[in-house]
Amino acid sequence: MDPNQDDVSFTPYQPGSDEEYMSKDMVKHFRGILEKWRSQLMEEVDRTVHHMQDEAANFPDPNDRATQEEEFTLELRTRDRERKLIKKIEESLIDMDKGDYGYCESCGVDIGIRRLEARPTATLCIDCKTLDEIREKNRA
C-alpha cells in the first residue's frame, strides 16, 4: 500500500475463477478504494487550512516566527504532494469511466489486481514501469 494511503483499508479483491479482468465488480472495488482515498486526502487538506488559520500568530520573537514558518512550509509541501495525488486519483477515475483503468498506458496489458491494490493510480504494468525507471536512471 502506498505510504500516503495508510488509512485506506479494504478487503483484497478475490476474482471468480471465470471472471474477466476489470469486470463490473472489480471496477466497483477499485472505484471504492480511489474515492475513499480522495475523500481522506480532501479532509486532510481542510484540516491543514483550519490548522494554519488557527495557529497563525505574529510572534514577537524571530526564532518563534521562523519555527512557525518552517512548520507551515513543511505542511504546505505535504499538501502540495497530496494535491498532486488527488489529481492522479481523479485521472484514474476518468480512465475508469472510459474503460481504460487497469491497463498499461504503454503496452496495453493488464496492470494486475495486486499491483493496483498496492498503487491504485498505477498507469504502467510492472515491466513497463521497470523499463521506465531504468531509462530515468540512465538519463541521470
Rank of each mutant, 00 (worst) to 15 (best):
M1S: 10
R31E: 05
I89K: 01
D61F: 03
T121Y: 01
G32T: 14
F72D: 13
W37S: 01
H51E: 12
A57V: 12
A56N: 10
S39I: 01
Y21S: 02
L85D: 06
R81Q: 15
V27G: 00
K129N: 10
T48Q: 07
Y101H: 02
C125G: 03
L74A: 13
M52C: 06
R135G: 10
E117D: 08
S92W: 00
L34C: 11
R135H: 11
K24F: 13
R81W: 15
L93C: 05
D7V: 12
Q53D: 08
M42V: 14
K98T: 00
E71C: 02
E70R: 12
R38P: 00
D18T: 13
P3W: 14
D80H: 12
Q40S: 08
R81I: 15
D18S: 08
Q40D: 10
N138V: 03
A122K: 00
T48H: 01
R139W: 14
G16C: 11
G16H: 09
R65V: 10
R31S: 10
E44K: 07
C107S: 14
L74Y: 14
D54M: 05
E55C: 08
Q5C: 11
C128D: 11
D97V: 05
R79C: 06
H51L: 13
G108F: 08
I33E: 01
P12E: 11
L41M: 15
R115G: 06
N138C: 11
C128V: 08
D95G: 05
I126M: 09
Q14W: 04
S23M: 15
R115Y: 04
R77D: 09
A118F: 02
P15L: 06
R65I: 12
A56L: 05
K98A: 00
E82L: 07
D25R: 08
F30P: 00
L116N: 05
S92P: 04
L131I: 09
S106I: 04
K36H: 10
Q14K: 09
K129R: 12
R83Y: 05
E90I: 02
